[in-house]
């Protein structure tokens, strides 16, 4: 678009959450200014009401020839009038997020766009280090490309040299909690929060973990065999072994107290009087704290 239009003057963006179809259609029907084309973008068109979507579908029947109207939606009903109208014009395209295993291939493709050939190891190493976030992957790839310079091939060593693996999985933290390893738990918690996890999200995961431990602990005390636990706890067998070994570190009462303390912690977080990270750390200390005789 930038080739045929001066986008500084000829681009308008709307948010489906607040904009009405009339505004969008008006913008689309406005003549371009000192340019051949106009670009109108509506983000979150799926948030618009059915009536507004209908008006956009009506517009699609007789669109302004000089305007490119781009509608962006996270999901859209294929039976809706709007989808059908856009589809009829051949303008509907879907960009699904890659599946878990497809990310390394996606990374290789992104490198190829820069004219680089990434080894399988390199692609995997990058995904492991950065996580599955295409935007972050893309910016890290830019970095790697700049680092290797004219060389065409990208190896795992290049990734290790440029990308710092700071992505901590919340499960590492939960394992440290279950192992009553206060030092690791606090360190991992700090990393998680620094990487943008919210205190509320981490607390919710912690509560879920304590519930699992409570369930496993009770089944152990009922002398349930480990292979029978998996269906009862709704987990995979390897998860059960992990949870059972952690549950053995606690008495039932310690676990129920951890859950009660989590409720108090959530109330404190939501009252907002003290900084969230401190409140959460205090809870971690109380859970991993010294075993009672």
């Amino acid at each position: 678009m930038a080739k045929v239009a001066d986008l500084d003057f000829n681009m308008e963006t709307f948010d489906g959450d607040g904009a009405s179809a009339d505004e969008v259609v008006n913008a689309a029907n406005t003549m371009p200014f000192l340019s051949e084309r106009r670009l109108v973008v509506v983000r979150g068109v799926d948030k618009m009401g059915a009536a507004d979507q209908g008006s956009l579908a009506d517009y699609a029947k007789d669109p302004a020839p000089y305007t490119a109207l781009v509608l962006v939606a996270t999901k859209i009903n294929r039976g809706s009038r709007l989808y059908k109208a856009v589809h009829a014009l051949g303008g509907a395209s879907e960009y699904p997020a890659p599946k878990r295993g497809e990310y390394p291939a996606e990374v290789t493709k992104l490198f190829a766009e820069h004219g680089k050939r990434a080894s399988g190891d390199a692609a995997r190493a990058l995904v492991d280090a950065v996580g599955r976030d295409l935007r972050r992957l893309d910016s890290e790839i830019d970095k790697v490309v700049a680092y290797v310079g004219a060389r065409e091939r990208v190896d795992a060593a290049d990734i290790a040299a440029v990308v710092t693996a700071d992505a901590v999985s919340v499960f590492e933290y939960l394992d440290a909690l279950g192992a009553r390893d206060l030092g690791s738990a606090l360190r991992l918690l700090a990393k998680l929060l620094a990487s943008g996890e919210s205190v509320h999200g981490v607390l919710a995961m912690s509560v879920r973990h304590v519930r699992n431990l409570l369930g496993a602990r009770a089944l152990m005390d009922r002398h349930t065999r480990i292979d029978e636990m998996a269906p009862q706890l709704g987990m995979a067998p390897w998860q059960v072994r992990n949870v059972v070994s952690q549950a053995g570190n606690f008495t039932p009462r310690e676990l129920s107290r951890a859950l009660c303390a989590a409720a108090a912690t959530e109330a404190e977080l939501k009252s907002g009087a003290v900084e969230g990270a401190i409140v959460l750390e205090r809870w971690v200390m109380s859970v991993t704290g010294p075993r009672r005789a």
């Binding site: 519930r211 409570l214 369930g215 602990r217 009770a218 005390d221 009922r222 039932p252 129920s256």
Partner: peptide
């Protein structure tokens, strides 16, 4: 007389 799992 309930254990942790019963309560949950």
């Amino acid at each position: 007389v309930m254990d942790g799992r019963d309560v949950l």
